[in-house]
Design a protein around this nucleic acid. Structure first.
Length: 423
RNA sequence: GGUGAGGUGGCUGAGUGGUCGAAAGCAGCGCUUUGCUAAAGCGCCGUAGUCCAAAAGGCUACCGAGGGUUCGAAUCCCUCCCUCACCGCCA
């Protein structure tokens, strides 16, 4: 959520900073400012009446204490009631309206973020390793089915399209990856492991920015009061919502595994083959909470931590920076990490590392006490470390051998218990 | 799920209709004094909104949340949430 004061004091600057996103928000900002002015006028008037009421009520108390007649004053206070009631309702309605609009306004991209409209405009920041030379690479679906690692048909039978079932060695590979990733980040990168609920309240979804704007992409349950988590970002970042955290703990670093549930509404037919885009997938998420001054360098470190996953597994990847038009709703700056998948002849996004600055913190009222004693909003960041299904795709497609077996990267072998998968 | 108790400022905890944003203690900050690894005294010490060009300052709201009664609500009434204890059920 953007600061209403910024919008009020520098509306033109605010409009220009949002102009590079792929929608025009100037009308929304104008609407917010009109509501804000109306709201404040109503509140000022109301507060004047409240003040008058309070003053008269104290007079009444004094008169009664002295056994004197207070009927005239009581009538005067009563005469204020109708206008006070009307102003209270108006102020509340305007306040709700203002908040509702503020919640659908995206974050400002950082000034240095490259301006662009779509994915093709995202600059490549760095590239690691090289594409392996594999003659006539098979794709992961063919490889996995041949080895019995997944069972797509039965997944559809029990849950519908967009779900997967891992079987036998396939299931064990998934479990090995989870343990490998959590160990890597907690042991080598200093993250604290968190195992959160997979269901969260609506307020949490608003806090991290999934709601109210993207409800159609979420799985709501219990009449809309609870949601299946679309990413561990939601429960983990919200752990400290409505808190004033101790700045001495900064940067707070959490690593969490959860399954991720996404409707993927509107993306039917896109990248739907195999494990690449699903309604449920596993992911290790890295979350950081820090002071504003730290967030820029923490984003670089976070991205580096996620890259280490691919380096350790010997996978070729590249890092791109998202342009203004391609960045997520709450993002101020985002790096995507894309791993090479020979069977797809394409790079697959396996991690998205984002600095949200104070956008989420303001929504969830997450603060710390500054050195001057004032409460300030924290900065929040998160990044996948990494998504599992696409990493799984990369391991199968990069590890495929001419005999149909799959080579398991050395770093993963202690977790998997074997150096290859074969029939 | 049942019964009972309870939710007050960073913490403990008083307060059952009026001058209570709220006693007191602890913690924190500042000053003073004496000195020695601390003590005493004094002062300050919640959050948010709003008014003012800004500062200073004023005003309003907030005692789990939301409604209601009243001239006036931390205090009375209703609904809900949460915590604790015991019982029931259960992986």
């Amino acid at each position: 959520m953007l600061d209403i004061r910024t919008l009020r004091e520098q509306p033109d600057l605010a409009k220009s900073r949002l102009a590079s996103r792929n929608a025009d928000y100037s009308q929304t900002i104008d609407a917010i400012l009109a509501i804000d002015a109306d709201r404040r006028a109503s509140e000022t008037r109301l507060q004047g009446l409240q003040s008058e009421r309070n003053r008269l009520s104290k007079e009444i108390g004094k008169l009664r204490a002295q056994k004197q007649d207070s009927a005239a004053l009581e009538a005067e206070v009563k005469s204020l009631a109708d206008e006070m009631q009307a102003l209270t309702e108006k102020s509340n309605a305007l306040s709700d309206e203002q908040t509702a609009l503020l919640l659908v306004l995206p974050n400002f991209p950082q000034p240095a973020v490259p301006v662009g409209k779509e994915a093709a405009d995202n600059p490549e920041i760095r590239i690691h390793g090289e594409k392996p030379s594999i003659a006539n690479p098979k794709d992961h679906v063919a490889l996995a089915e041949a080895l019995g690692l997944i069972d797509p048909d039965r997944a559809v039978k029990i849950s519908g399209s967009g779900f997967s079932v891992y079987m036998g060695q396939g299931a064990k590979l998934e479990r090995a990856l989870l343990n490998f990733l959590l160990d890597l980040h907690t042991r080598d990168h200093g993250y604290t492991e968190v195992s959160p609920p997979f269901v969260v309240k609506r307020d949490c979804m608003v806090g991290t920015g999934q709601l109210p704007k993207f409800e159609e992409d979420m799985y709501g349950i219990d009449g809309g009061g609870l949601f299946l988590v679309p990413t561990a970002e939601v429960p983990v970042t919200n752990l400290h919502r409505e808190e004033i955290v101790n700045a001495a703990q900064f940067p707070i670093k959490y690593a969490a595994y959860t399954p991720c549930f996404r409707r993927e509404a509107g993306s039917a037919g896109r990248e739907t083959r195999g494990l690449i885009r699903m309604h449920q997938f596993d992911k290790i998420e890295l979350v950081k909470i820090c002071a504003p001054e730290q967030s820029a360098s923490e984003l670089e470190a976070l991205t580096s931590d996620a890259e280490r996953v691919l380096q350790a597994l010997g996978l070729h990847y590249r890092v791109i920076e998202l342009c203004t038009g391609d960045m997520g709703f709450g993002a101020a700056k985002t790096y995507d990490i894309e791993v090479w998948a020979p069977g797809q002849n394409a790079y697959l996004e396996v991690s998205s590392c984002t600095n949200f600055e104070d956008f989420q913190a303001r929504r969830m009222n997450l603060r710390f006490k500054g050195e001057d004693g004032k409460n300030r909003f924290c900065h929040t960041l998160n990044g996948s470390g990494t998504a599992l299904a696409r990493l799984y795709v990369a391991i199968l497609e990069n590890g495929q051998q001419p005999d149909g077996s799959i080579h398991i990267p050395a770093a993963l072998q202690p977790y998997f218990g074997a150096s290859k998968i074969s029939k």
